[in-house]
Write a protein that binds this DNA or RNA. Structure first.
Lengths: 152, 152
DNA sequence: TCACGATCAGTTGAGCACAATTTAATCGTG
DNA sequence: CACGATTAAATTGTGCTCAACTGATCGTGA
């Protein structure tokens, strides 16, 4: 009604895209949980494994950049993966500040069992692959703009 | 190439809508943080306040249903809001199993200061309101399908 | 009536997330 | 070459999230 949009509506929960994203993230997590339990992984651990399945022998920092997580989150997470026998962490030879994360044979083998996971998610989403790809691209673009705004 | 889509591509991080949602949620959180610090709230606390600003004197269970959170998350969160003087928690009179959460005058007053928050998010998103509304509706629909799949 | 199952909040334990700080190694500039 | 700045990881503290469980209360049917 007024020239400037009334802030009242903006404060309504159901109008907020942030809450939509927040609650969708939790919903994904809950759908993933039973699928990942078969692999003995949590969702963030699964993400770290995805990074390693794409490229092995990665410094912690690179994993953090891919996943937007810092060492405070990754160090204990990777120690748990190491305790589970899926990865090995060793100091970098040429730069001893870094820690290189490498898959063990068991870690590499887990990839086969993980193949069924995305299929299960696809089914639960009730979407076609094309719809999901389109949404994903939009959300990634939004995320990148948010992260860019943070750096300014 | 094959008839059925190869699972290899599905296991790539950048192809996963779940990771897009997950990382966008973190990006939102990081954008919110400096805005909410002025109110002395975390993002989940802000969500609880949004619920209460819409309807006061709500049982914990109703807040949980709105936010998709359980008592294990809400009980300590609401205790912190109570310690901050923003809400009061009292056992329900007619049903003593419930705990009714009510705003204090300070909690009600905080709503005015919160008016600036959504504007800040809108700016950081780099989107028009219409674009955000469209995305929000899509994400909510996806979330609801995921939650429905969980209940089956 | 009262016994039993359902419901609501709270508690505990494990794991994730980030801010702030620490430690160690490396880099860059004088 | 030395020394301050930077970088990588780890650590600590606070808070969120869920699963599993507890305890109290409620409602209903035998």
């Amino acid at each position: 009604m007024a020239k400037k949009p009334a802030p009242a509506g903006f404060l309504q929960l159901d109008n907020q895209i942030c809450f939509a994203v927040y609650s969708a993230g939790h919903a994904f997590n809950r759908v993933y949980k039973p699928l990942l339990e078969k692999l003995g992984l949590t969702y963030p651990q699964y993400l770290a494994m995805l990074v390693l399945w794409e490229r092995d022998n990665v410094p912690v920092k690179d994993i953090g950049e891919k996943l937007f997580l810092d060492s405070g989150t990754l160090t204990p997470l990777l120690k748990r993966l190491e305790a589970a026998g899926l990865v090995k962490r060793t100091r970098g030879a040429e730069d001893e500040r870094t820690v290189i994360v490498a898959l063990t044979p068991q870690g590499r083998a887990l990839r086969d069992k993980a193949g069924a996971v995305p299929q299960g998610i696809l089914g639960a989403s009730g979407c076609t692959v094309d719809q999901l790809v389109a949404m994903k691209d939009e959300i990634v673009a939004l995320r990148n703009r948010l992260n860019k705004a943070l750096g300014e």
